[in-house]
């Protein structure tokens, strides 16, 4: 019983208004009989952390047990994922699986440091959200759409494109776009989306490939201009931003976040978790919050999510190799 007693350890600090969050100790004998911990394989504050907290609150209420977020950052999200892969498959330890931890990092890092198989060592439970990337340009850059981007890149010695970091899904999109469009793009990695966006607003870098949640407010506020979206169809929140496909380039790629446990979780728990999550994501409140930051609620069953992870894992491996980024 790893965290038995946590409900009683209601701190004075948290206790002030956390009654709703922590809830009463469950009387039910069945799962969940104790708090569930969700490992976020990143430091607090990122998108993964945010999605986890957004869902944890409502899901905890539905399950009658608090969901405790535990941040275990490191090695492109592999430290936390490895930790969960080795935990007991009892449904009390889950991880925020995502495009980095389960599709990009395993191909990015040298084989001897990847200590789990993204598909086989996990029970993939549910997709929480996926969101497209959006390319934004500095307002004074003169780049307004994909066509001007291509012309500018072809005319000069290529274009600088910022991203939130080497090996991120946005970096991979830059590599793919350069390949598909046959132009030269210079990847300028930053430490996180914030500094990269600052550089684009200031005009130090003309372009950036960013996830929609972190770029949404800047597009709305007019501090940068949206060029194209990496979704298959136009996004409901930004209907006037055209997709890459519409602009003649078959570039589609969402980043995604889901919930997974160690391999061998009981099917009953997986089914219960999946249905509670999907019911939660379908509430008006959650839909509104997702729409606000540009995410699409996940609607896959557990098998569907497992297939999805398998496909993504296979899809990104060649792109990672082409990117020349390697963490070895």
């Amino acid at each position: 019983m790893r965290f038995a007693g946590t409900t009683r350890r209601r701190s004075v600090i948290v206790g002030l208004s956390a009654l709703a969050v922590l809830g009463q100790p469950a009387l039910a004998q069945a799962w969940p009989a104790q708090p569930i911990r969700v490992v976020v394989p990143y430091a607090p504050g990122g998108t993964t952390d945010l999605v986890a907290r957004l869902v944890a609150q409502g899901l905890g209420e539905r399950l009658g047990q608090p969901i405790i977020i535990e941040n275990r950052p490191g090695a492109g999200a592999m430290v936390g994922s490895e930790f969960v892969a080795r935990a007991a498959p009892d449904g009390y330890t889950l991880v925020m699986s995502n495009i980095a931890s389960h599709a990009i990092s395993p191909s990015l890092y040298p084989a001897n440091t990847v200590r789990y198989n993204a598909v086989r060592d996990f029970t993939h439970v549910a997709l929480l959200t996926s969101n497209p990337s959006v390319w934004v340009a500095h307002n004074g850059s003169g780049i307004t759409d994909l066509a001007t981007l291509r012309t500018r890149a072809a005319a000069g010695q290529g274009l600088d494109v910022a991203s939130s970091g080497a090996g991120s899904s946005n970096h991979m999109l830059i590599v793919q776009l350069a390949q598909l469009a046959g132009i030269t793009l210079h990847h300028i990695p930053f430490r996180g989306a914030g500094p990269a966006m600052t550089a684009v607003i200031a005009g130090q870098v003309p372009l950036m490939s960013d996830s929609l949640p972190s770029a949404a407010a800047h597009i709305r506020g007019g501090s940068v201009r949206a060029i194209a979206m990496s979704s298959a169809r136009r996004h409901a929140t930004f209907p006037d931003v055209a997709t890459f496909r519409e602009q003649g380039l078959d570039l589609v790629g969402d980043s995604w976040f889901g919930l997974s446990g160690p391999a061998g979780m009981p099917a009953a728990i997986v089914t219960r978790l999946n249905s509670e999550i999907r019911a939660l994501l379908d509430t008006a409140d959650m839909r509104a919050r997702y729409a606000e930051f540009g995410g699409t609620p996940g609607a896959l069953d557990a098998d569907g999510y497992t297939r999805f992870v398998t496909e993504e894992f296979a899809r990104w491996a060649p792109v990672v190799r082409a990117s020349g980024a390697e963490a070895g």
């Binding site: 790893r2 007693g5 350890r9 701190s11 004075v12 600090i13 948290v14 405790i68 535990e70």
Partner: peptide
């Protein structure tokens, strides 16, 4: 444990 509720076995 009581106040900060750090994640560790007691």
């Amino acid at each position: 444990i009581k106040e900060l509720d750090i994640r560790v076995n007691v």
